[in-house]
Design a binder for these strands. Structure first.
Lengths: 214, 214
DNA sequence: TGATGAACATACTACCGGGTATGTTGTCAA
DNA sequence: TTGACAACATACCCGGTAGTATGTTCATCA
């Protein structure tokens, strides 16, 4: 319950549990996913999971945290690029979408976590851990948010409300976690092509000058 | 279990149940929402709900269906407008977004239902009812889809893959069901202003010509 | 080599929630 | 007036699941 954001000891057994848990949470949702099922998918039993995690909520939190770690890592090469906002945004957005596709299960869990937080579907004990996670994810959103702000200042992005626009942009970039499903014989190029279409759509939403008239 | 899509007898008692159920499903999700809680929020008990619905799944199905009914009704005045695709699309999209905001609980339930179907989180008995509902919602999506196709033929919309674009567009238009929350003192004009920003973003995603080069 | 603890499995408890069976009350028609 | 039925409430059953308590195995180290 007091796992620090930065200190994971990701031995391979824990990693296996995390992957299995992410998949279960993705397929069933938080409430419907059972610890027994996660264990079964590993060919193990509850004992293994409760040996590593004190509760279901803590397991879920670790999946969430790991998913966010992956996202930070994905945009790390681009977030501090100097220069105009648009090319930096494109690189970050593309990396983000690729992450959504390639680590879908974890990203879905992140989504579920955010939803639970927004709905207040957390017990007081979970609140502390959850608030930390939400802040972690919030800071990630702010990286994009700042780029949006810069882009507007440069006159390449057009929008009224920064918060709403950031929401809309993330909705688009995150959307593959819902509708993407891997096809047999799919190459990396295929996935990148997909991601490009997603980024293009989002970019269009940002760069288009809107008329003032109703 | 064999409620026809078109034949509702929406007496007021059932309507109250539907509204309460929609709210609970929105706040907790399908699995975590309990019949007891729905009843409690009505100042009643399970007996009332099971008198009207044979199962939780059937109750949920009716919420889903009612939500979709509202959507069809919302775009009805515009869907058969003659003329260019863009203005028709804007009217439909705006009406759709307004629906997402004003009937949020029902629309959230629809989303949950679609998600459950995509994940295959349905028992064989539910399948029949669910397939019908998904088809109902699919036909609704096709109304927009057809407009997107026409818009591309007219040279005002630019995109590669119709299915993906339709997904991205709906993701944007539906997004208020996640991040919108009513503010005190909010007027209809405020909500319409919000909806306009959402539609603008989506329109930008559709009308922007994308470069061929990688 | 014996002891210790990590890494699990097994067995069990407590509780919650879907569903059912049955009781109760008001209404309306004959 | 009564009886029949709709519209619930009450009481109960039962399967599933989070969490716990305890047993077991294996490696490591003094």
């Amino acid at each position: 319950m007091t796992l620090d954001v930065r200190e994971h000891n990701l031995d391979s057994s824990r990693l296996d549990i995390l992957r299995a848990a992410a998949t279960c949470f993705m397929e069933r949702g938080y409430a419907a996913a059972s610890i027994d099922e996660v264990a079964r998918s590993l060919g193990a039993t509850k004992g293994r999971i409760y040996h590593h995690y004190p509760s279901k909520a803590d397991l879920f939190a670790d999946v969430f945290r790991t998913g966010m770690d992956m996202n930070y890592e994905a945009i790390a090469p681009y977030r501090d690029l100097a220069g105009p906002a648009l090319p930096r945004w494109r690189r970050m957005a593309f990396a983000h979408v690729m992450q959504m596709i390639t680590t879908r299960a974890f990203q879905r869990a992140v989504w579920i976590g955010v939803e639970m937080h927004l709905r207040g579907a957390t017990t007081p004990e979970q609140r502390t851990v959850f608030n930390e996670l939400i802040a972690y994810r919030s800071a990630y959103g702010d990286v994009f948010r700042e780029t949006l702000r810069q882009g507007r200042a440069e006159g390449v992005f057009f929008y009224e409300d920064l918060s709403i626009t950031n929401q809309l942009m993330f909705m688009t970039l995150n959307s593959p976690i819902f509708w993407y499903s891997p096809r047999s014989g799919e190459t990396l190029a295929d996935i990148e092509h997909l991601a490009t279409q997603v980024v293009d759509f989002a970019e269009g939403g940002l760069v288009t000058r809107k008329e003032q008239a109703a």
